[in-house]
Computed example of a mutant assay.
Amino acid sequence: MDSHAPQSPPPPFSPKIEDGFFLGVVLLVSVAFFLVIQPFLAAILWGVIAAILFAPVYRNILAAIPTHQNAAALITLFLILVIVIVPAFVLGAALLQEAAHFYGKIQSGEIDFARLFSQAMASLPEWTRPYLGRIGLSNFDAAQAMLTKGITSSFRMLAAQAFQIGQSAFSFFMALGVMLYLSYFLLRDGEKLSQRIAVAAPLRASQRQALIQQFVIVIRATIKGSLVVAIVQGLIGGIVFWALGIQGALLWGVLMGAFSLLPAIGTAIVWVPVAIFLFASGAIWKAIILVACGVMIIGMVDNVLRPILVGRDTRIPDYVVLITTLGGIELFGFNGIVIGPVIAALFIATWNIFTRMRLTGSGAAG
């Protein structure tokens, strides 16, 4: 056999195999990249949120100095620090101080929830006793013990959380630095980056546009329509509590702001029990003022501010917001306040696109 005979060329490699292998590499590298940035996912999330919310501010500043993108981004970042970061630090420090002071009063016996509860129950009319028995409050000693134990354990948990925050201060400031650093570049290069992501995403133009639009809408709706309203309601509630001489006004205000994020629960879960206690303890005028402020001012903030900040057409149904917010908090902690509704909005958007595709044929989503 002639060793110099021409050999047949190797069979051509299937493009499908090459494409499949490259797709596997893309997925593998993407998973590895996700694992690398996982410790800073919260910082990345809030960096994206800050860039989305302050993008109009950046564009207005850039319009005034069109050839200085870096300066416009730095000025916007400074505004984020002044408007958001610094007030959040001041509020957090004041809240921790108030919580420690309030907890100290509980430990010293200056604030005795058992005694206050007993006084409130004793001042209730006689005809209320059967109704209290039906809901398990006829045994005053057991109810007092349960209430005192619950409140005391809550403050211990808050103290433990504050201690953990102090221990992880380095990690917190590192994450804050990552958030601000990312916000700077997203403000400056966000439009270019979003265009590159849009081109790379394996979606039709209509699908891509619908998902991006829904993502931006729900971010703005969640922050502007929920957090801003929560801040205003908590601020008003705290001022009302302070004016009425109720101890721990800052704590109550923060609690009202937190509960206002949850539809169907709202601030009433805080001020209604306090108003009932004031009625029962004989502070009738304070209770009337608190109820009036709760209904006419605190409760109306949501109905007045939310449509102005968000608009009525961008709202997710309240029951969806409630379920996804609670589920998001359970899975992701505080960040779930944003992540839960965002996932819900994208879920609704993708199923709307899929439904339109089925109705109009498999070609495109209208």
Score class of each variant (00 low, 15 high):
I323A: 00
A63Q: 11
I83V: 12
F140C: 09
L211N: 02
I65E: 11
L53K: 03
P317Y: 09
A51P: 02
V178T: 04
F215A: 09
A344G: 02
S206N: 14
Q233C: 04
F13C: 14
A243K: 10
S123G: 14
S138C: 13
G366P: 12
I65W: 08
R59H: 11
L79H: 02
S281A: 14
G282E: 11
G238D: 02
A88N: 09
T128L: 12
P87D: 10
S30I: 09
L278M: 11
S108G: 15
I239Y: 03
S108N: 14
G47Q: 01
Q214I: 13
V228R: 06
M1F: 06
R134Q: 13
L290E: 00
Q38N: 06
I212K: 05
A88Q: 06
V36I: 13
Q213A: 13
I80D: 00
A280I: 08
G253A: 06
R115I: 08
G150V: 11
A205H: 14
M121N: 06
A283W: 05
Q213F: 15
G150P: 04
L262Y: 03
N352A: 09
S260V: 05
I298E: 00
G177L: 06
I265V: 15
K16S: 12
I323C: 00
L250P: 00
I111V: 09
S8E: 12
P273I: 06
Q69F: 14
S118C: 12
I223L: 07
L79N: 01
V26F: 15
L262I: 10
I197S: 11
A94R: 10
W46V: 02
M174S: 08
F163W: 11
L193G: 09
W285V: 08
Y184E: 03
V25Y: 08
L186N: 00
A280M: 07
I231P: 00
S30A: 12
T148H: 05
R115C: 11
I288P: 01
A145G: 12
L74Y: 04
A100I: 05
A122I: 07
L187F: 02
A249Y: 06
I223D: 01
I348M: 11
L187C: 03
R204L: 07
A72H: 01
L278N: 00
A51C: 08
P130G: 08
G109I: 06
F259M: 10
G24M: 08
G336Q: 06
